[in-house]
Write a protein that binds this DNA or RNA. Structure first.
Length: 416
RNA sequence: CGGGGAUUGGCGCAGUUGGCUAGCGCGCCGCGUUUGGGACGCGGAGGUCGGAGGUUCGAGUCCUCUAUCCCCGACCA
């Protein structure tokens, strides 16, 4: 992408009341546009990041044999009445509206009930199970107060996955495989180091559910880390009973702020019983399906990455999610400089390397500042100086060192 | 939903105890000088001050209502 074509621009300032670092940086660098409180549009650079995160999640979910689908945003009230969750007193984040015939419908804040309802049509035999499905969907939640930039919005992108299994054993096997898949996801997203499996409240069927919490100052959760065991406990379930169950001593725990970037949950047969989702087992008996639910807040993860990996000059995207791998700066407009920069842009692009090409008529300082702010992993510079020396200047966003490299070897140096 | 703060060109802000054609920075347009870490000069364009009502000779400044945004709290992926 040539920056002369990109409609967004960077800004030196941001509204004083926009306090969260992720929103400040993402707005300044032109990744998101705030539409209203808790509602953000994703401009081309931001969308690219979102898509890259999705790709990683998609690969890992496919790897545990889940099938991608997409559910609807408009939901009938009836299926939520079956579980008692249509009531605003039970679920306080509902957005509801009406069809022209006055019937009430809901806007998707979750897809648990719709998935179960839909699956009733497809699941009849034990031979059908296990099944796992997932989607990337925009969730709409009428939060009383949204905050922290894109980390807690009224509209946000979520990957939600649901597993249907025959029994507790089959469920547990699948659940464990997802747990491993999630670890891979966070590793690949560059936040694995600081992301902990966290024991949280589990509902009716298990004492615990598991959250994936990333240490982050802007986070809304407080967790207690056990570095030795590499796990954490959410403060909501921190009591003597839990400590005993997990065989942990209170004095070994370290309190940190964190953001919940994922959640895996065992519903047991609770929802299936309420909604009558059954299958026939080998002996011809009707059984309730075991259900698991697995979420990853895609847009929140983007916010967490922006928060955690940025520095005082701007964003620092990991290569796996960066909107481009290379930020190519052309300094000056001498014919030979333009020619070489254009050629390099074409070459890299044709090799499938994504390049943000700063072909704007601006001063060096502004270009360098923008490169830092936008946070692309590699920065290449072509100027009259480099042309003279027959080299290209290469610098990584995370490093202060620049080095001169040859045109021919450039592709090999840019590793994803 | 409780408490606090805010709303003035595209963006960020200032605007005294009400007073004349509402300022500044960034950005934008034009010309020129510059050109490796957000240059400089000159000349321009662009706002009726969130909305409605009121007080007043006169309202961005005061009053009432209302909308929206932000922060803290309660609640949540």
């Amino acid at each position: 992408m040539r920056l002369t074509k990109l409609f967004t621009r960077t800004s030196k300032t941001v509204a004083a009341d926009e306090v969260s670092k992720n929103a400040q940086l993402l707005i300044r660098a032109g990744f998101v546009h705030k539409e209203m409180a808790g509602v953000y549009a994703y401009t081309p650079l931001g969308l690219k990041v979102l898509e890259n995160i999705k790709s990683i999640v998609r690969e890992e979910m496919n790897a545990v044999d889940s099938q991608e689908l997409i559910m609807t945003n408009l939901q009938p009230s009836a299926i939520w009445e079956e579980t008692g969750r249509w009531d605003d007193k039970v679920v306080d984040v509902w957005f509801k509206t009406k069809l022209k015939d006055d019937s009430e419908i809901g806007l998707a804040w979750s897809h648990e009930e719709p998935i179960v309802d839909m699956m009733k049509q497809y699941v009849t035999s034990y031979k059908d199970l296990p099944i796992s499905v997932y989607q990337f969907q925009t969730k709409l939640r009428n939060e009383l107060r949204s905050k922290s930039g894109i980390m807690r919005g009224r509209e946000f992108l979520m990957k939600d996955m649901y597993s249907l299994t025959q029994d507790a054993k089959q469920h547990d096997e699948y659940y464990d495989s997802v747990k491993e898949a999630y670890k891979k996801v966070y590793d690949r997203l560059g936040i694995g180091e600081d992301t902990y499996i966290t024991f949280a409240s589990g509902g009716a069927f298990t004492k615990f559910s598991h959250e994936f919490q990333t240490i982050c100052e802007t986070g809304e959760d407080t967790i207690y880390l056990h570095r030795g065991k590499n796990i954490a406990i959410n403060e909501e379930v921190l009591d003597e009973d839990s400590l005993t169950k997990l065989d942990i001593k209170r004095e070994d725990l370290e309190e940190v702020k964190s953001s919940e970037v994922g959640n895996i949950f065992n519903f047991g047969t609770d929802k299936s019983e309420k909604m009558d989702l059954t299958f026939t087992d080998e002996d011809g008996n009707r059984q309730f399906v075991h259900l698991g639910s697995y979420g990853i807040g895609i847009s929140r993860v983007m916010g967490v990455i922006a928060e955690k990996l940025s520095d005082d000059r701007g964003l620092v995207w990991p290569k796996s999610v960066a909107p481009a791998l290379v930020y190519l700066i052309r300094l000056g407009d001498e014919p030979e400089v333009v020619k070489q920069a254009d050629e390099l842009y074409e070459k890299l692009t044709s090799e499938g390397i994504e390049v943000l090409y700063d072909d704007r008529d601006m001063r060096a300082g502004e270009k360098f500042a923008d490169a830092d702010l936008i946070g692309i992993p590699y920065r290449l510079v072509i100027s009259s100086k480099t042309v003279e020396q027959g080299v290209i200047e290469l610098k990584e966003r995370t490093s202060e060192d620049t080095k001169s490299v040859q045109f021919a070897e450039i592709s090999n140096l840019l590793t994803r």
